[in-house]
Design a protein around this nucleic acid. Structure first.
Lengths: 216, 216
DNA sequence: GCCGAACCGTAACGTTCGTTACGCTCGCCG
DNA sequence: CGGCGAGCGTAACGAACGTTACGGTTCGGC
């Protein structure tokens, strides 16, 4: 998926990618706050190299966030021709994907760092996470929603509002509970069931025709 | 200080409450990470006193969280006799209250600290926040939901699941965006409108009878 | 008025950690 | 072969901060 380098997006050398992988592992596995020394040791590189490549600790954190964001890119769903079944499937798939992402150790650790320094640091880590997480998500789903509307399957005045409602329906309290350290086990079956329920409820709220609950 | 108190709940002396207020202000207003020195200076007390009263930094943080939690206690709603109008009003009021809480600077700062040390520290700050936030919330609302079910206004198999859906409907992406540092302006009108929408959507999903949207 | 306890302000100590500097090895290029 | 730049490992420096210790002040009780 090497389509285009957006402005502000830097491509990392293979060795740099290795270092960032190591930093990510350190962030996830080592419960401690991330220190430059720990990253250097785990990556088997020198601190001097870290500073040369990433300037300072904030730069390293920013690089980690961007690096991870570049990998999480889910394939954009192309609207295509939609009937009720395929729209439902798209919604379910989308919700399940997102639940899997926010339940991953990596996402939790990254969000923790971004939240922990939000409001304090000079570097808007939180903004980067939001841009590549929540907002990228919205941009991905909106075409699907609008295609569904064009097909007469659902209706809403604003796709942004419709998306936020869908977000609430599948995310619910999961993310905040995970971030606060609760050990929720999100088994694949649980995720699938939650995604199905969210899609069904969304269609109930926004369906152009009264949608009857399917069995199952 | 042999004062017998409720299990896990300690009562603070007036002076201690002052100090905790100051600590809370420092946490909210000073963008920096909370240091013992900053708290002592703002509270006009000595560090030695801080350590005597709260043992160490974790103890101080825990005390701050408990102190704030003890103040936020919203009045428990008593189910009483419910018709559709009063149930709707209860839900709207509940959602609006919660939105006001999570949008407050204090709640954001406290959640940031709890999240920042979740998974790392020995003291489960996150668990305390969850217990006094999300879970206390559920305990407050469930009687209302069950009274609504008893009155035949709504129906659901599990009040926990119904509550989580309602939570998703009013919280949506607000909390995560605030925690990540986005400046959302939640004007009173916005909050009221969001609460109304969430209550209406919840009744649409769980209403025993098809509820028609009200004008306005 | 005197005593002791509580408390304030400040100094001091040790650790952690970000940041910089230095010596060494290794692979590439002329 | 010789130079050289990149990068590794480690040491060193300085600041921030948690924690402890100390001297001075206030205040209630005798």
């Amino acid at each position: 998926m090497e389509t285009e380098a957006a402005p502000g997006e830097r491509v990392f050398s293979p060795r740099q990618a290795e270092v960032l992988e190591a930093a990510l592992r350190e962030l996830v596995e080592g419960g401690r706050p991330l220190t430059m020394g720990a990253v250097a040791k785990r990556a088997a590189c020198s601190k001097e190299t870290l500073y040369k490549w990433f300037d300072d600790r904030d730069g390293l954190l920013t690089a980690i966030v961007r690096f991870q964001a570049a990998r999480v890119q889910v394939a954009a769903v192309e609207p295509g021709r939609l009937d009720l079944a395929s729209l439902t499937a798209r919604l379910e798939e989308f919700a399940a994907n997102w639940l899997r992402v926010i339940a991953s150790e990596t996402s939790i650790a990254l969000n923790r760092v971004a939240i922990g320094q939000a409001g304090g640091g000079a570097v808007p880590l939180g903004a980067i996470v939001l841009e590549n997480g929540r907002f990228a998500l919205g941009r991905r789903l909106k075409p699907v929603l609008e295609a569904g509307r064009a097909a007469g399957l659902i209706d809403f005045p604003e796709s942004e509002e419709a998306f936020r409602t869908f977000f609430g329906l599948f995310a619910r309290d999961v993310q905040i509970r995970l971030l606060l350290g609760e050990r929720l086990d999100l088994a694949p079956d649980t995720i699938r069931a939650d995604a199905r329920r969210a899609a069904r409820q969304f269609l109930t709220l926004y369906g152009a025709q009264p949608s009857t609950g399917m069995p199952g």
